[in-house]
Simulated assay, not measured.
Amino acid sequence: MYKLLIFTSFLSVICAVDLEKDDLAVCDWEGVKGKCVSPHRCLTSLGEREPKHPTCSEKKGEESFICCTDCELVKNASNAVLSPTSGLYWKDGRKAWDQCLQYLQELPLECRLDGFYAGISRHLDEEKQCHQYGLWAIGGAPSPGKIPPSQHPYEAVMGFGKDLESVSWLTSGTIISDRFILTSAHGHITSKGEHPLKYAALGVKNRTEDKKNWQIIGVKKVHQHPKVEERYNDLALIELETPIVFNKDVLPACLPDPSEVVNVTVASAPSWKESDMDFTTFTDTAKIVKLTQLSASECDEKITEQELPIPVFYNAFLPNGIDDNTQLCYGNKDTCLHTIGSPVVVDRYISWCVSTVVGVSAYSDTCGVSVYTRVQPYVQWITDIVWP
């Protein structure tokens, strides 16, 4: 059952940009005056359900101009990206932001598999005698017989060993591009010895299933953050030998742009653990654990009141306590159930269609509290390596 939703608020005030004043040929489309422009300056030209704009005689090289009756012209409509669930966004040159919008635009996200679509609509402004633009959206049900995709398609499982016959899948990370995985520095520094970091497995829904259902790619290089000290600045980027192939079970997470306000008070994390398991033991399948943020002082208090030797380990790994600027703390009965390097994500940063990684596990020796490295303060370092 599908529903058609019309967004009645017009977006021209948000999307319009100041353009150089230039003499554009005047045209007429069904009694409404317009300007002859390149299609990329006319947002309603993206409207797949709207009538096609008539062409003008004017051209720019081989490009034909169209008669655009929009009340405001835009600088480049090709930078507009529609979310099936949350509206219209614009690429603006910020690497992390633009890449997230690219994922939203191109990848087989679950919301699209569930029948969510959006598009541009246009409405005549009677007073101005030009067209304002809005959005339409369709939300529906998944196709009959649909096989549910992974609930953590952004997670990579990291393998240690000299070959695939001897590999142990011990830690986790977050796919952020087709070549890079974001994880913690601790647990991922070694590349030599009997158990070097050797492989990344993508699309892992069950650890005991046939490995032919996984994408297994070799590790090329580990980029450790230059200021790692104990569990502070505890981040690393794992560069892969060959590109990841994205599908409904293997998808990247977005990075939170440093200039954006991101609500991290409630988040979620994939867990392969039960409370009595050590770091080498895992459940067959992962569950998604809901997390609630704690302040630095709450976090410190809950950890230091634990029985020995937990406070000793805490003081050794985080001798200055929790740094609110670069770390996050989450608390509930399930927050001990994390894997080294595993992500914390939110789903409402841009669109719930795509997850955004906001934290990477840094410390947890007690059930009820876990410390994560905040991703947002390190996005510049990440993007300089991943998208130089």
Rank of each mutant, 00 (worst) to 15 (best):
M1Y: 06
Y2S: 13
L4Q: 08
F7S: 12
F7W: 07
S9R: 12
S9I: 11
V13A: 12
V13L: 15
L19N: 09
E20R: 05
D23I: 12
A25P: 04
G34W: 03
T44D: 13
S45K: 02
R49N: 07
P51A: 03
P54L: 08
T55Y: 12
E63S: 13
T69G: 06
D70L: 05
L73S: 05
L73R: 00
K75F: 14
S78T: 14
S83D: 04
P84Y: 01
L88C: 12
L88V: 01
W90R: 10
R94T: 13
K95C: 07
A96G: 12
A96R: 03
W97E: 05
L101H: 07
Q102M: 02
L104Q: 09
L104E: 13
P108N: 08
L109H: 03
E110H: 00
E110W: 00
Y117T: 09
A118I: 07
G119K: 03
E126T: 06
A137L: 15
G140H: 02
P142D: 08
S143I: 04
P148N: 06
Q151S: 14
H152K: 09
Y154T: 07
M158S: 02
F160R: 00
K162R: 11
E165K: 15
S168F: 07
G173F: 09
S177K: 04
S177R: 00
I181Q: 11
S184Q: 10
A185R: 09
T190V: 13
S191R: 09
P196E: 04
L197W: 04
K205Y: 00
N206R: 12
N206D: 15
T208C: 01
K211T: 09
K211M: 08
I217R: 07
G218R: 10
H225F: 14
K227V: 00
E229C: 10
E230K: 09
E230H: 05
R231T: 02
N233P: 05
L235M: 10
L237T: 03
P243W: 06
D257E: 14
P258D: 03
N263T: 01
T265M: 10
T265S: 15
V266F: 06
A267F: 11
A269D: 09
S271G: 14
S271W: 04
W272Y: 14
W272F: 15
M277N: 02
T280L: 12
T281S: 15
F282V: 04
F282A: 11
A286M: 11
V289S: 06
L291M: 15
T292S: 14
Q293R: 15
L294H: 04
E298R: 04
E298S: 15
C299D: 07
E301H: 10
Q306M: 13
I310P: 02
F313E: 11
N315V: 01
F317I: 00
I322L: 13
N325Y: 06
C329R: 01
G331S: 09
T335R: 03
T335M: 06
C336N: 08
L337F: 00
I340T: 13
V346K: 01
R348P: 00
Y349A: 13
V354I: 15
V357Q: 14
G359M: 07
A362V: 10
Y363S: 11
G368D: 11
T373M: 12
R374T: 11
V375T: 05
Q376N: 10
Y378E: 01
Q380I: 12
D384S: 13
P388A: 06
